[in-house]
């Protein structure tokens, strides 16, 4: 039953994206797309174990999007201000950090978030160790780097993908 609901939710999301994209609410268009969306969701949600959706997780997800957006803006000003200096201030290196997240989806989101935030770029992940290129290395110690780069995101992601 829950699986069926998850598929229905995926199909509804696909239809919504289609309607926004085409700007058409014409009955026959939506009917065709609904059929296609159901077909797609029937095939593609089979192998995925979707994380359970609860109101708490939704609230944290929304908070996370805002947190990430602020981080993106900071990252852009940070890098842009480095670029316009006469001599680019650089202190680069690759450091390793450890993540407590266990779900693959959570780790993907974490790695992408790290790439989007100030001066850090994820290069490789082995087990729970994430290698990050850091434009301005403050510490090479794994624990301290983890605190600096990952901790802010993990707080949210642990609840969302927990």
């Amino acid at each position: 039953m829950e699986k069926f609901l998850a598929r229905l939710l995926l199909a509804a999301l696909l239809v919504l994206i289609y309607i926004v994209w085409t700007g058409s609410t014409d009955g026959s268009d939506v009917a065709v797309m609904s059929a296609a969306a159901l077909l797609v969701s029937a095939f593609f949600s089979k192998s995925r174990r979707m994380p359970r959706i609860t109101p708490v997780k939704v609230a944290w997800s929304i908070a996370y999007v805002f947190y990430l957006f602020v981080a993106i803006i900071k990252a852009n000003f940070d890098v842009a201000s480095r670029i316009v200096r006469r001599k680019i201030p650089l202190n680069p290196g690759i450091v390793s950090v450890r993540t407590r997240l266990t779900s693959p989806l959570g780790r993907i989101v974490l790695a992408n978030s790290i790439t989007l935030t100030p001066g850090t770029l994820s290069v490789e992940m082995k087990g729970d160790i994430l290698y990050v290129h850091w434009i301005d290395v403050a510490t090479t110690d794994r624990e301290e780097a983890t605190e600096e780069i990952v901790a802010g995101f993990e707080k949210y992601l642990e609840v969302i993908f927990g």
Binding site: I72, I73, A75, N76, D78, V79, A80, I83, L90, P92, I94, T115, L116, P118, G119, L121, V123, H133, I135
Partner: peptide
């Protein structure tokens, strides 16, 4: 180098 270029290429272009 490439890694720092990727930083510029992703950060400044996202916003």
């Amino acid at each position: 180098d490439l890694y720092n270029r990727m930083q510029a290429g992703t950060k400044a272009t996202t916003l």
